Simulated assay, not measured.
Amino acid sequence: MAKPRIFEKPMGVRDFLPEFVSKKKWVEKQVEDCFRSWGYREVITPTLEYFDTVGKASAIEEEKLFKLLDGQGRTLVLRPDQTTPISRVVSTLMKEEPFPIRLCYHSNVFRAQEREAGRNAEFFQSGVELVGDHSPEADAEVVALAVEAMKACGVQNIQVAVGHIRLLNALLEHVVQEPEMIAKLKQSLGRRNLVEFRESVQSLNGSDKKQMVLSLLTMKGGQERLDQLAKMDGGKQVAEEVTHLKAMWHALEDWGVASRVVLDLSLVGSLDYYTGVYFEGYGSEGYYLLSGGRYDRLLEQFDRPASARGFALKTDRLVMASTQGPDHPERVALVYSRNMRYEAFQIANRMRRQGKAVSLFVKESDRSFDSLAGYDRVEEVIGDGNL
């Protein structure tokens, strides 16, 4: 195997230059302020976790986990997501704290990618977890907070698409009733392979069945779609899930964000992970900025069963989608002769206290200052503390 060249990096990892880093930190600050104002407290979890605990409990497929061995031969993983480690924390270090618990995070996560996929193996996320509240208001809260976090970063044309896993399951079980076909239809939706989904529907018996299942692809809208579902004779489970979803929708209206939310029953996320509401957030130019939902089964794996929901913002994409950014201080290049060094240092400190970013350069006969063109202002110390 050839030795890597000096400019090469492992597949899927990146270097970040100052301009991106500056805006990334600004985005994270806006998001953090928003989370804190809603009562969420930040936690930090390890980059390394045990495969047998967090790795196996994570919704991320095993083939996408970065695995390594510690000195005792135990398998570790690089953190593939934040929801699973936080579930571990809630169930252990915070086990005496009463529900509900509101936590938030900013971190990098790691997922192995196939060489031809061209995706990042390390990326940044900011998100929240609301644990221990089964109410529709709690579901609405994380959706509303997702909208507010995107607004805080200056994202334009925000839209959140909301699906509901239990409602989808109940509808398919009521109409299709064949477990193998239900699994096949859900897998097609999970892969967003609508051609495959329609082909599977055509194999169903009865035109009414076909029409009902195909209608899931167009079951998009707002309150009117929920009213339509409420009138449907879909059985007890469908009625219960529609009631919960309507209550959540009314809470979203009270939050003032319902106009940015659209119901989409074809939206499913990770089929084996989410148990109720699932949602995705978008901004201008179709930027896919976040995903989240309800995951009531995860905490059972850490021996503290509880309802839970949350979302993760895709920080890299949020940086690109944001129309705003940090206010950069004036960049000043301060040139001085060595006999004026003390004066130059005092001037630099005074200017820094005024909020300017000051870099110092020694004036020498053989030195060119062409590189100072990138500064907003170039000043030379000439004597008596003057410029």
Rank of each mutant, 00 (worst) to 15 (best):
A373Q: 09
A344N: 05
M232E: 10
L298G: 02
L168K: 01
Y288E: 06
A333G: 13
G222H: 15
V201P: 01
V21W: 01
D316R: 03
Y336E: 01
G269K: 08
K95C: 04
P4L: 14
G283K: 06
L48W: 11
S322R: 05
A57V: 09
H250Y: 14
I101F: 09
A306I: 06
G293V: 03
S322N: 08
R341W: 11
G283C: 06
I101D: 01
E364F: 07
A138T: 04
R79A: 01
F345T: 10
P46G: 14
S207F: 12
L217S: 13
P179V: 06
V155C: 12
L229Y: 11
S284I: 07
A308T: 12
T45N: 04
R377F: 04
Y282E: 04
E330V: 08
T243W: 09
N205L: 12
V109A: 00
D272G: 15
L185G: 04
S200C: 09
G127N: 05
R367Q: 09
R352M: 11
N339H: 11
L298T: 05
S91N: 08
V77R: 03
R41N: 05
P4Q: 12
R115D: 13
A149R: 01
D139L: 01
Q82M: 14
V128L: 13
S259F: 08
A170K: 05
Y40D: 01
F369Y: 11
S37M: 07
M212F: 12
L78D: 02
E97D: 10
A112G: 01
S107K: 02
Y278S: 00
R353L: 15
E19C: 00
M340A: 07
Y295T: 06
F7P: 00
F123N: 06
R36Y: 13
L68K: 07
S259D: 09
E63D: 14
G132S: 07
W26S: 02
C34Y: 03
I347S: 04
A152Q: 04
Y375K: 15
V109W: 07
Q113F: 01
E122M: 04
F35D: 02
A161W: 03
V77A: 02
D133H: 13
R198Q: 08
D384H: 14
G71D: 07
N205W: 10
I182W: 08
Q177S: 13
G55E: 15
D70C: 04
L69M: 08
R297V: 03
M340D: 14
V335C: 07
Q228I: 02
G190M: 06
L245H: 05
G206R: 13
V131T: 11
E241W: 15
L313R: 05
D272M: 06
S270A: 14
R198W: 00
D227C: 05
K209T: 13
S200A: 14
E380A: 08
E285P: 00
E63C: 04
G283N: 15
L372S: 13
K24R: 05
M11H: 06
L372A: 10
V213L: 12
H328S: 08
S87I: 09
